[in-house]
Design a protein around this nucleic acid. Structure first.
Lengths: 234, 234
DNA sequence: TGAGATCTCGGTCGGTTGTCCGACTTTAAA
DNA sequence: TTTAAAGTCGGACAACCGACCGAGATCTCA
């Protein structure tokens, strides 16, 4: 038998360099696992080159699969981007939840939470943050996917709001403004500082601004211990 | 004579509505004027459909010129987008400067300035704001145009900083933090609230948050009248 | 074991985009 | 008036992208 594939060099199985006789079977993976593999590859590409410059071919190459397989798992580009956005949101939310201390009052939760977020998800993963703004604006323009940006900020604001609420309850404190307002404004100031940081990276200046912003947020919240903890319903 | 242009509706000269017989000469415009005409059309298209979906053909159609003429004035798309970004920055800066009262102290300047900006450039021109975030991220990705996002935020921060400084000096006040910090954080919180507003438009909530944010900014600035105005250099 | 479902691959196709060109028209300088 | 420069136009072209297909390989379950 001749090497039939020599006429179609690109058709050569990826494992053909193995010693003759050892068939290198095509990797068969469940679609569910493929999904997260592809999403991971997509996040890499998106973080590096940006949303507009990201092609399905680049994602497929990064994932080590063919364009056909990619299309088999994600029939359209929108579906892939939607999956990427929701995945990233969940991942960031989980990372935030992980390094959190909600038993030392609102001020400590706010300062520790924001600084932890900044060091773990901004300073070291700038491309990821830019990608989120790109995906947000992208979904705002896309007719059908306009709800994703809504969902994105809805998730983040409720997340921060809930954190503040839990921190206050755990430490027996009350705040001068509603937790929803506190959550949205906290998110807003951090968001704005991220934008300034990606546009003009300067860790020293950013940390200085961040600390001033945190002082300011604490003044807004003005957490005070409640006289008595009464009726702590569950 | 038949209406020859009916077969090429888009080729109809803009002056064809003149009475028959009057040759409708091709509009000849200096390149300098063409530039701002094209930039204006580009802003319209960009605000409506977004940066990634904006094509040179759409811009040319909006401007009422041919693709060739567009390419004659702006040899590349990057050049056009750069011109758009700088133009919009200048325009917004001018609008801000126009409706400003810098003689009633830092608090008044901050509140009036932010609310004026919000009502004139956010509430009624949402697409323009989204476009700016798109252009910022776009220039961050583009190799050669990476400096535009830098310039964009540099301009805005120095603008706000200078406003605060002038307001303080005019009213004889001092602030608890540096004017640069105050300017950057003010811009950050407004930026963040814009993002939340475009992702989930709700004028009532936005205005409520905005007022709380302004209270917070005023607390941060903590403007106090100086005892004596001494050595008012210049 | 065998038959259907699942998964993978390379190639292709229609459509779009940015860039460019040659010919023509108008303006402005000589 | 003559002539070069500036401006305009429609068309064309190469490149690229997303979507799609048919055929084959692999897995799964009865």
């Amino acid at each position: 038998m001749q090497e039939w594939w020599r006429e179609f060099p690109d058709a050569r199985p990826s494992g053909a360099h193995d010693r003759a006789g050892s068939r290198s079977p095509v990797a068969y993976v469940k679609a569910a696992e493929r999904e997260q593999q592809i999403v991971g590859a997509a996040v890499n590409v998106l973080s590096e080159v940006g949303v507009p410059a990201t092609t399905l071919r680049a994602v497929a190459a990064e994932a080590g699969i063919s364009l056909g397989t990619l299309h088999y798992v994600f029939p359209s580009k929108d579906l892939l981007l939607q999956s990427v956005l929701t995945t990233v949101i969940d991942e960031i939310a989980a990372t935030l939840r992980a390094g959190l201390e909600l038993d030392k009052g609102v001020e400590h939760a706010l300062r520790a939470g924001v600084l932890n977020f900044w060091n773990r998800l901004v300073e070291s993963r700038l491309g990821l943050q830019i990608m989120q703004y790109e995906l947000a604006t992208y979904s705002l323009r896309a007719e059908g996917a306009g709800g994703l940006a809504h969902l994105q900020y809805e998730r983040y604001t409720t997340l921060v709001t809930r954190f503040c609420e839990q921190a206050a309850q755990a430490a027996g404190e009350r705040c001068a403004v509603g937790f929803d307002v506190l959550g949205r404004i906290s998110l807003a100031v951090v968001d704005g500082l991220i934008l300034q940081h990606v546009a003009n990276p300067d860790s020293e200046r950013s940390h200085r601004d961040l600390n001033h912003a945190l002082d300011m947020l604490v003044m807004l919240a003005d957490p005070q211990p409640v006289a008595r903890v009464r009726g702590a319903a569950k």
